[in-house]
Design a protein around this nucleic acid. Structure first.
Length: 261
DNA sequence: ATGACCTAACTTTTAGGA
């Protein structure tokens, strides 16, 4: 089972890119973030015409997440539990049933950016990460293949950024942020890309500004976290960097895992 | 070169992103 995640920075602006990726990579499941569209505004017919089922948690103008799947979806949950006041659409999960009869539970996550630090935006990010840890702990007790995929807005390590000195005060790289990410891993989750490759300079995002792509000034912030039952079946990962050179690209590229499910 | 972008919206400027 090939499971991919991609922050598309507007699903309406990026529809042709999404359809092209579905044709090229043939993912069984694709998690999308930053739809920047309401449920009704997501181009469902075009996606379904490619043979995908669609579960959406949209929002006007900002945020918005979705799960696309070639296999049936059930147990769809919209919104991260833990704060009834939180109306931002940043979390959706579903149970994917493969033809083999095996299942995988998959979540599409758009973790808050948190900048600037020292504001309520940063405390919201840290609170959101604590809520995610609480929810993940519950999911792990199900002891099933689980993939928490998305834009975490976390640079886990200095080797995941081209110029770490410039990022030390940034909400994506601050010690508290990285510590919260490590706590998530400490629950028993495996970060898929690092389970397969420890090279520095694996990036998933390059800013639109200042020629970041041309200079390869990237950061790695899009991750797939696996339960033990998923990690046991991990056979490979891929960062689909070539999509960053497409015309009018997203600033993020897709990342995928292959699981023997 | 302390430069340089992109998106949505009750749009012609502002907020949010990372």
């Amino acid at each position: 089972m090939l499971i991919a995640t991609w922050n598309v920075n507007s699903v309406k602006q990026r529809l042709e890119h999404v359809l092209r990726f579905l044709d090229e990579a043939r993912p069984d499941v694709l998690c999308l973030q930053e739809l920047k569209a309401t449920d009704e505004a997501v181009p469902a017919l075009e996606i379904e015409a490619k043979g995908y089922n669609l579960a959406v948690h949209g929002q006007k103008a900002f945020n918005g997440v979705a799960i696309l799947s070639r296999f049936p979806l059930s147990d769809i949950r919209r919104g991260l539990p833990g704060d009834p006041e939180d109306i931002q659409s940043r979390y959706i999960e579903a149970l994917v049933s493969a033809p083999s009869g095996r299942v995988a539970r998959v979540a599409s996550i758009y973790l808050p950016n948190g900048n600037p630090t020292g504001t309520d935006k940063y405390s919201y990010k840290l609170r959101w990460m604590e809520r995610l840890a609480g929810h993940a702990a519950g999911l792990l007790r199900l002891e099933e293949p689980l993939v928490l995929a998305g834009d975490y807005n976390v640079i886990p390590d200095a080797r995941d950024v081209s110029n770490p000195e410039a990022w030390v005060e940034d909400a994506l790289f601050r010690p508290e942020t990285r510590s919260a990410f490590r706590r998530l891993l400490g629950l028993g989750l495996t970060e898929a890309v690092r389970a397969c490759d420890d090279k520095p300079g694996l990036y998933t995002f390059w800013d639109y500004q200042a020629g970041a792509w041309q200079k390869n000034k990237g950061i790695r912030i899009d991750h797939l976290l696996l339960s033990p039952q998923a990690a046991d079946r991990l056979t490979g990962t891929e960062i689909h960097r070539h999509t960053r050179s497409w015309d009018k690209p997203s600033d993020h590229v897709p990342v995928s895992v292959t699981l023997d499910i």
